[in-house]
Design a protein around this nucleic acid. Structure first.
Lengths: 163, 163
DNA sequence: GAAATTAGTTCGTACTATGAACAATTGTCA
DNA sequence: TGACAATTGTTCATAGTACGAACTAATTTC
């Protein structure tokens, strides 16, 4: 018998639904800019500068063959450019095109705005708490599964809620 | 210039990464049972009993044609059965097969176990807080966008953190 | 400098997601 | 009652996602 009585279940249920919501927001924003969610995610990852394919596979948790396809399509749409790496002639760096950069920023802002809007009713304190609690959760997962590539100094440097 | 200095950005960054993590967990568990994440999600939604197609499109945020395909493939795999609705001869109800029910429970448990594991280090208090804060967030979104189909009494009846 | 490793691509397969057009059924209301 | 509208779900064509196996080219290792 599977019912939803234990707090444990409640908790994961909350997480799953939250994830679903974030995905939804991402999807809406992507569509507004005529992107797929995956393309939008790619663009957002490139905002801080060019990134190599291997790094991207780690960041997106994709197999390299999947990423090749994603980048191919993004390139065909003129959102992104493949640049040959000068040091390692096997490697390449993926870079936003001018168009891509514009859209990337818009999409990023769109997601941020919508998600922020959802919490504007929450007291700032809870918001901060939520952030660092999630930070803890992510840190826990990272320490458990080993490395998890990060584009730059984000989330994880928020002070953990524990200790 | 897009940097990550404002707490606002930190917060959405946390949400997005959390969503990503949940998706990942879902993906791992699904794979263990030789399912796609979408199939696993479908099965989990059916645990509490048969559901009609229209209801499912709302729960999964899919177009009806997309759902037809998803159910088709799940049915072909013997995970699910289409039952004709006796009252409305246009409609049908999707029901777990015996095999499907077994796998659905396993997958559900798998996700629950893994997500719970991530928070076992957190003090129970924070965990509860996280849950209800997320509950608030979801409620905010629901009230904003109107209806959001729920399979049964979940999350939302957790006491809101605000007020 | 041969062998192992690493970076990316190609290819075949299965799955995901959508919109438009459609058939069947049910509901409305004049 | 009987035409018309709305609802339920399917089919089809199209584009995109994701994977693993096999592959090429460049780099490291020994």
């Amino acid at each position: 018998m599977v019912t939803t009585k234990e707090p444990a279940l409640r908790f994961t249920e909350a997480l799953v639904r939250l994830a679903h919501l974030v995905q939804q927001v991402f999807g809406e924003v992507s569509r507004e800019h005529d992107l797929t969610p995956q393309q939008a995610q790619l663009l957002c990852l490139l905002i801080d500068g060019p990134v190599g394919m291997t790094e991207l596979t780690r960041a997106l948790h994709l197999e390299k063959s999947s990423l090749t396809g994603l980048v191919d399509r993004a390139e065909k749409r003129g959102l992104v450019v493949r640049t040959r790496d000068s040091r390692d002639r096997r490697a390449c760096r993926i870079e936003l095109s001018q168009d891509g950069a514009r859209i990337a920023v818009l999409a990023h802002e769109g997601v941020t705005r919508r998600l922020d809007a959802l919490t504007e009713e929450l007291p700032e304190q809870h918001r901060a708490l939520l952030t660092s609690a999630i930070g803890d959760l992510l840190a826990e997962h990272t320490s458990r599964t080993g490395r998890d590539w990060l584009p730059s100094g984000h989330v994880t440097d928020a002070a953990p809620v524990t200790r």
